[in-house]
Simulated scan of single mutants.
Amino acid sequence: MTEELNGSETRLGLVWGCQAIAKVIERTPRQTFNMLEKGELPAKKVGGRWVARRQALHALFNDFSQSA
């Protein structure tokens, strides 16, 4: 069972919703939505809402920054 910590993040490190994911990756909600729809972010749709693990989002962008 999960409890909401700060609105859109759970004890499991899940980030719920496109806007919350956008804040984590420092992109606009529109950019984030397009990335989610294209499958460019490690996220899934659950009950009509996008959900991603904060750790997976950070890992994805850390990999990009190290290879650039």
Rank of each mutant, 00 (worst) to 15 (best):
L5Y: 07
T10M: 05
A52T: 03
A43F: 08
T32L: 12
G13H: 01
I25Y: 05
S67W: 08
F64T: 11
K38A: 15
E26K: 13
G13Q: 02
G17S: 01
R11T: 15
P29D: 13
W50S: 05
R27S: 11
K44N: 08
L14C: 03
L41C: 04
E37T: 15
G47H: 03
A20L: 03
F61Y: 07
M35G: 07
F64C: 12
M1W: 06
Q31D: 11
V51Y: 06
A59H: 04
F64A: 11
Q31S: 14
E3F: 12
T32P: 03
R54N: 00
R11F: 10
E4L: 10
S67D: 15
G7E: 06
F64R: 15
W16T: 02
N34M: 12
E4N: 12
T2E: 15
I25T: 02
S67E: 14
M35I: 12
E9R: 14
R11S: 14
L14Y: 03
Q31R: 10
L5T: 12
R11K: 12
E9A: 04
K44F: 11
R27I: 09
Q31A: 13
L12Q: 11
R27Q: 13
Q55I: 06
V51R: 10
Q55N: 08
Q55G: 00
K38G: 09
G7Y: 04
T10E: 05
R27E: 13
D63W: 10
C18E: 08
I25A: 04
G47Q: 03
A68E: 15
R49K: 08
W16L: 08
D63V: 10
N62E: 15
E3Q: 12
Q55F: 05
A20H: 00
Q66V: 15
C18N: 05
A52K: 01
E4T: 07
K38C: 13
N34C: 11
Q19N: 11
A43E: 01
S8H: 11
R53H: 10
L12G: 04
E9K: 10
K44I: 10
E40Y: 08
F61K: 01
T32W: 04
T32Y: 05
G48K: 01
A22Y: 07
W16N: 05
A68I: 15
L14V: 00
A22F: 10
R30Y: 14
R54P: 00
A56S: 03
Q31L: 09
W50G: 04
A43M: 07
Q31M: 11
L36I: 05
L14P: 01
S67H: 11
V51Q: 08
A20C: 02
F64S: 12
W50K: 03
E26S: 14
A43P: 04
N62A: 14
S8T: 04
A56F: 00
V24F: 00
K45R: 09
A43C: 10
A43Y: 03
R53A: 14
L12F: 10
K23N: 04
E26W: 08
L5I: 12
L14I: 00
G17V: 01
G47N: 09
C18W: 00
G7C: 05
L41G: 05
V51M: 10
K38H: 14
